[in-house]
């Protein structure tokens, strides 16, 4: 809270600048954690999907448009880091839009478990979208994609939802704080 008090002394422009550096900085941290496999972050060789957590955290209390833009941008970056074929932009954009459409705060006040559940569902959805893209491409057989989808999506969904609060909690605190200041 102390930092927030200091920020309230800043001019609106400077405040906005600090806010955007926090956004960009947190994305950068997620991107840098992506290639690491620290102990406890791995299940059957599969790590959590940090970018998806960020997109869900961002979209949960924002409009579908905001969610779509964040998903598109992070999806494009992840494409650059892996391969653009099949694209991540589509799945993350969908995750952003749907998370915003849920309008969670209207139904549930509680944050931790509901966000973890949303992340779980969204990871399954993103995995399914990727699998469907592979299917349309036709480079792999149906059975092969199904086995890979089952193996990847389930462990990824469990891990990602367990790690979700680590990203969600500090970011949400920050965004709540800045919202209070603006109003």
């Amino acid at each position: 809270m102390e930092t927030l008090l200091k920020i309230s002394n800043l001019s609106p422009r400077a405040r906005q600048f600090v806010n955007w550096s926090v956004n960009v900085g947190s994305v950068l941290v997620c991107l840098l954690v992506l290639p690491t496999r620290l102990p406890g972050m791995e299940l059957l060789g599969i790590g959590p999907n940090w970018l998806l957590i960020w997109v869900v955290a961002w979209s949960v209390k924002r409009s579908p448009f905001h969610g779509a833009v964040a998903g598109l941008a992070l999806g494009m970056i992840q494409d650059g880091m892996t391969s653009p074929d099949p694209t991540h932009a589509l799945s993350l954009m969908l995750v952003g839009i749907l998370t915003a459409r849920l309008q969670k705060q209207r139904w549930i006040q509680e944050d931790f478990i509901s966000v973890a559940l949303i992340v779980f569902g969204m990871t399954m959805l993103a995995g399914t979208v990727t699998a469907l893209q592979y299917l349309l491409q036709g480079s792999r057989s149906w059975a092969e994609i199904w086995v890979a989808h089952e193996r990847i999506t389930l462990s990824s969904a469990i891990l990602t939802s367990l790690w979700a609060p680590v990203v969600y909690y500090p970011l949400n605190r920050w965004w709540e704080g800045t919202k209070v200041q603006q109003s």
Partner: peptide
């Protein structure tokens, strides 16, 4: 402007295959 900036940056990172990110990652680790 912000949306344009965000998507523009993302596009540049995609086109450079995340080279900047991997360089930062390497220097940090």
């Amino acid at each position: 402007v912000l949306v344009g900036l965000t998507l523009g940056t993302a596009w540049v990172i995609e086109q450079t295959q995340g080279a900047a990110i991997f360089e930062v990652y390497q220097s940090l680790t």
